[in-house]
């Protein structure tokens, strides 16, 4: 699946990287590379939802990034 949104750091635990779409849907990024760890970055991410993963942040579906384009 492809998601377009903005990178945000959510304050749960020591901080969790999220991808928030324009309609407000929040995805928790699974182990994002350092380039994606920038607040306010607008990106298009191709990846898959990991339904088999639970997290301490619990902010939304876990998105495992396969590739991305910085917009």
């Amino acid at each position: 699946m492809t998601v377009i949104g903005t990178i945000e750091k959510k304050g749960f635990g020591f901080g969790t990287w999220a991808l928030v779409t324009d309609d407000g849907t929040t995805y928790e990024l699974k182990d994002p590379v350092s380039e994606l760890q920038q607040e306010g970055l607008k990106v298009e991410v191709k990846g898959k939802i990991r339904k088999d993963i639970m997290t301490i942040a619990m902010i939304g579906a876990v998105l495992e990034v396969e590739s991305y384009i910085v917009l």
Partner: peptide, 29 residues
């Protein structure tokens, strides 16, 4: 901050088999 359902389920069984009275799971999704 993430882990697989398989590992979490295994830990629940381990806790139950080893005398835990209360299991707290501050996790989800």
């Amino acid at each position: 901050g993430g882990g697989t359902v398989a590992d979490i389920a295994e830990a629940i069984k381990f806790a139950a088999d080893n005398g835990a009275n209360v299991i707290n799971m501050s996790l989800g999704g």
